[in-house]
Each structure stands twice: as C-alpha cells, then as structure tokens.
Computed example of a mutant assay.
Amino acid sequence: MNDDSDIPSRDDTQGISPAFSFAALTPDCVLDALESVDLYSDGRLLALNSYENRVYQVGIEDGPPLVVKFYRPQRWSDAAIREEHAFVDELAAAEIPAVPAMQIAGSSLHTFAGYRFAVFKRRGGRAPELDDAATREWLGRFIGRIHAVGMTKPFAERPTLDIASFGEEPRDWLLAHDCIPADLREAWQSVTAQALEGVRRCYERAGDVKLLRLHGDCHVGNVLWTDAGPHFVDFDDSRSGPAIQDLWMLLSGERSEQRLQLTDLLAGYEDFVEFDARELYLVEALRTLRLLHYSAWLARRWDDPAFPVAFPWFNTQRYWQDRVLEMREQIALMDEPPLWPA
C-alpha cells in the first residue's frame, strides 16, 4: 500500500493546516486503534512511504501482517471514503485483483482518537517491467476490466476530474496565497492562463467524452506485479473522468516510444472495453492539469512536517522558474497532433 504520489481532491479546496493532523498518531496510537477493532499486534510496526495519509504495516499475533491506513482529516467525507471502498469491493467481486478494505464488525471505515482508518490485507509485489510489450498489454487488459466495472454506474460522493477543480482552482489558490515569487508572478500567471486555454481547446477537440469511475492515480508506483500478474493499490484518488486518465500516466519516453506503449496498452484494454480515440486529444491536457494540481498540493501541505523533508526543492526560486518553462512546453505539446497508436 503506497500513496506517496497522491494528488489532492476537490475536498481539499479549503486547504488544511496539518499541524493538528498526524502529530498525535504515535506508534502506541496506531496499535491502540487496531486493538479497538480486535486486531492485536505482535509489536512490529513499519511506516510505509506515504504523505497524503499515514500508512503502516503492522505485525499481527497469530496471523500475517496487515496494512492500516489513517486518512488525512477533512480531505474526504466518510461517504466518499466508503464509496471508494465499495468500488474496490465491486472489483474484487468481479475477480479483478485489487485490494479492498477489510470488513470488520460490518464496516470498512473505523475511528479512533479522532482519526479515521481502514485495514487492508498486505499484498506484496514488484514494479512492472513497462519496457516489455506483453506486460503493457497485460496492464491494458487489467485497466479495461476495471473500467468495465467502473462504467456500470456513477459515483455519487466522489468528484469529477475537470478543468475547474484540477486547473483553475489550484491556479487561483496559489495566486491568492502568494505562493509565487514576486518577480515570477506575472510570468507564471500569464503562462498558466495560456496553458488553461490550451486545455480547454483540447477538451473542445475531444468533444463529449464518456465519464466513468476510475482508479484516478494510475501510475507505475501504484501497480504491484507478481507471477500471477498485476494488481493495483491505493484507490484513494478514485474519481470520475475519461478513460484515458488511467492510461496516459503509464506512457514515457520519446513520442515514438509512447506510440508503441499506447498500442500495447490499448490492445489489451480493448479486449474488455472499446476505447474512444477522441480521448487522445486529452493526454497533454490532463498532464497539464496534473502539473498545476501537484504544485498546489505541495503548497497546501507545506505545514505538514513530512513535506519539507520529502520535497526540499519545493517553493524555491528555481522550482517556480522550472514550472514556468514546464507550462510553456505543455502549451506547445497541446497544440501538436494527438498521440495515435502505432
């Protein structure tokens, strides 16, 4: 269970001061929380790589280790967390290898000392070898199976990935909180305005694409591979959006390499779900939105002591200079023809 790359959700728009947050979540508190649901540790406790939430592997008496996730307060409503859990339960019921939250005393979500938490079975694995065509096709089939379930009904409590919440609101928040150095503010504001115009043009070219329930943060760090194949972890950013959102983050390298990767992914994907090629107009638009959202996420979390340690390069003059250049590159990329399969 690894959520180190979480990007903030719609529910983050008010900002959260994490000073309250995880300071009281001591090892004793973690173990006491588990005991409150009749799970007893053998004393082994390992903090896993996680920033948005806090995630631990805990040794259990007379049983295999479990993973417990403590949710960042105020980020999601209880109903939204339960809806995520229900989605993963649907996937598991369809024999899709995802890791659902355990049902304990009739519930997947629990509270202790003001914290909300869920417990998961530990599922190990290694990073997938994305340079292998067969691996990419297998991943495509897996994502297609997830989407076949995801399109059966909509989310009611979880947000939609859109320009307003992933682009305009983060941009406005960063400006309102004076996050941009004064000598770069005008350039950054101008280039992000141009970038968002480019995003809107990409959406116009794509037209009215179908929205479905997604993993939402489908990058290689959230895929674990075993001899039996892949399984995804960390559905914490699950939301509604276009299918391509769960595919584009698995592409890398030069354009020619990405075309081959996309071909393999779609070859597997379309064994289960037909892909709407118009969504390829959204690849660079979605990348642009993610980049804007990521900067705002780091800024919102900067009071959390874990963030300056993990991201020491953030909020420096060089960081914002690089973001200006990055947005200029994205503006050019969004005006290029879409990435068609080979």
Score class of each variant (00 low, 15 high):
76 W>K: 08
76 W>P: 04
77 S>Q: 10
77 S>H: 07
77 S>V: 06
78 D>Y: 02
80 A>N: 06
80 A>D: 05
80 A>S: 14
81 I>E: 00
81 I>Q: 07
81 I>G: 00
81 I>T: 08
82 R>N: 08
83 E>L: 10
83 E>Q: 11
83 E>P: 12
84 E>M: 04
85 H>F: 07
85 H>Q: 11
86 A>W: 04
86 A>P: 05
87 F>S: 09
88 V>Q: 09
90 E>C: 05
90 E>V: 03
93 A>V: 06
94 A>W: 08
95 E>G: 12
96 I>S: 02
97 P>C: 02
97 P>A: 02
99 V>C: 05
99 V>M: 00
100 P>R: 06
100 P>C: 02
102 M>V: 01
102 M>Y: 03
103 Q>K: 09
104 I>K: 02
104 I>A: 00
110 H>I: 12
110 H>L: 13
111 T>W: 06
112 F>V: 03
112 F>I: 01
113 A>W: 00
113 A>L: 05
114 G>H: 04
117 F>K: 01
118 A>S: 15
119 V>P: 05
120 F>G: 02
123 R>D: 06
123 R>F: 11
124 G>I: 06
124 G>H: 02
125 G>C: 01
125 G>F: 00
127 A>D: 15
128 P>H: 09
130 L>N: 14
130 L>W: 12
131 D>T: 15
133 A>S: 14
133 A>Y: 05
137 E>V: 13
138 W>Y: 13
139 L>V: 08
139 L>Q: 08
140 G>K: 10
141 R>Q: 15
142 F>N: 08
143 I>M: 14
144 G>V: 09
144 G>P: 12
146 I>T: 08
146 I>G: 03
146 I>K: 03
147 H>C: 06
148 A>Q: 13
150 G>W: 07
150 G>E: 09
151 M>K: 15
153 K>H: 13
153 K>N: 01
154 P>D: 01
155 F>T: 04
158 R>Y: 08
160 T>S: 13
160 T>Q: 14
160 T>I: 13
161 L>R: 13
167 G>E: 09
168 E>V: 10
168 E>T: 12
170 P>A: 03
170 P>C: 01
173 W>M: 01
173 W>D: 05
176 A>L: 09
176 A>E: 14
178 D>R: 12
